[in-house]
Write a protein that binds this DNA or RNA. Structure first.
Lengths: 258, 258
DNA sequence: TTCTATTTGGTAAATTTTACACAATAAAGT
DNA sequence: ACTTTATTGTGTAAAATTTACCAAATAGAA
């Protein structure tokens, strides 16, 4: 929080560059070792975690804003981003539970509670998918930390962000059946067992280890490479990669996956 | 437009009760005689049509606001309503093409262009389904007319509403495959041929006249009644109705329909 | 009674999904 | 060099679902 000046300026003058009353919150998902992960921002002053979020510049489209907000936490641009729902319950933020005096003092700003930030805000929910291993989470201007959490080990979140995660996850799961977006969660080369595990974890159900990869190959979505992975004292599995052409088409058209 | 006072008050003081910078626009669909219809608001001053829309009261949830806005045009509440996408391109409204002088004069308000309404606005898109025959379209506070249009005969719309219709229709079609929402477009009692026609028009593709209804019956979604409809010089078809229990469950769970 | 247009029961063929047996193989231990 | 262990991956048969379409039923008009 060394850039206090920048923060003060955002709180006092932000409304000139950002649209008030609207924010974006992003559920950024990653996958590692049979676990679905999500990126959460920690706020010491609020004593809790919430989804990474931000405001929309007056010059940006929603997608551009979401991209920027996601990039601020992951340092990666052009992640797979999907707008899934907009949240606008008038009581989604419990203003009376926030200690404005404390904030004013901490931020060095006289009347924080009168700022443009402190008013009813509707939030556009996006979810993003990324290869877990490529991300080094970064805390932002307001937040104190940013870290990966296993999806079934996240603490109760601030505001209505528990509901946001639930809805994002639901959309992700539905879309996973029709769009081969597992590609976004895997490295460029992977084994059949690995992609099988991604689908089992994300969908939360068993898929036949032989039939499932067979279908992916049959649809032409993935192609066998002439390389194997060494996995110790077992038969070395072949590596596969997504077929870009078929994959791109399936992303647009949709294909039923089991 | 006899309630000029009400309108003036909305333009001048509306921001006290409504959230600025955010609106809701609704694509209200109906079906009649092999045609999908959509409700459009006409604006003489703008010389064009757009989707019925409105602002969100500070006490309302988004769904409540959408319900109110839809009810203002249809006089019907509790229609099937789905939020499908939020639109926020900075240039979705071409401000420079609007003649504020003319508006000010017409509305009897000195500086219309300085009102809270004239600023970047993000719009939450909803689509609604309703039995065409139950609706008597009503013009609203700002609009001059409100009428049904065949979906393939709508004029170019104002703002980004062409894109909104396109996206709403896409969502409707996708959802029609998994949720038996044709129920919302049909009267309580209908023949197999009628429900078959609804699906063919909405999906824009041929469905086998025998297999399709057979599947609906097999899934238990619709049930045969002990009544027939007189259709002139042909064999009288049986009437069917949706099975409320199976139908409600399918709305939540989803079922694949061909 | 016959004709026309439409509804509907039934059934066979084609396709897709599901289940599962077993052969292949990599490396470590004996 | 052979055995053991754990995992990969080919093949195939059974089950279920989807698709195609024949032919009978039927209502009113000619």
């Amino acid at each position: 929080m060394e850039t206090t000046n920048e923060l003060q300026d955002f709180i006092i003058n932000g409304y000139k560059h950002y649209i008030p009353h609207i924010s974006i919150d992003a559920a950024i998902f990653g996958y590692h070792d049979h676990q679905l992960k999500i990126l959460l921002s920690g706020f010491k002053s609020l004593g809790g975690y919430c989804l990474p979020g931000g405001y929309i510049k007056r010059t940006e489209t929603l997608d551009e804003a979401a991209n920027r907000i996601v990039a601020e936490r992951t340092s990666l641009t052009d992640l797979y981003l999907q707008q899934y729902k907009t949240f606008g319950d008038p009581d989604r933020i419990k203003w009376n539970e926030l200690d404005f005096e404390k904030f004013s003092e901490k931020l060095g700003i006289p009347y924080f509670k009168d700022s443009w930030l402190i008013d009813q805000t509707i939030s556009v929910g996006y979810y993003a998918l990324t290869d877990f291993s490529l991300v080094t989470p970064k805390a932002g201007l307001m937040s104190d930390s940013c870290d990966w959490f296993n999806i079934d080990e996240i603490p109760p979140l601030l505001y209505d962000h528990d509901q946001m995660v639930k809805d994002a996850l639901h959309t992700l799961r539905v879309q996973l059946y029709y769009y081969p977006i597992a590609e976004k969660l895997l490295p460029a080369k992977f084994t059949l067992t690995e992609i099988h595990a991604v689908y089992e974890t994300l969908l939360g159900k068993k898929l036949d280890i032989r039939n499932f990869p067979k279908k992916l190959v049959f649809l032409g979505l993935i192609k066998k490479l002439n390389e194997k992975r060494n996995i110790g004292p077992h038969r070395a599995p072949f590596l596969y990669k997504f077929d870009l052409k078929k994959y791109t088409k399936a992303l647009e058209t949709g294909t039923t996956l089991t």
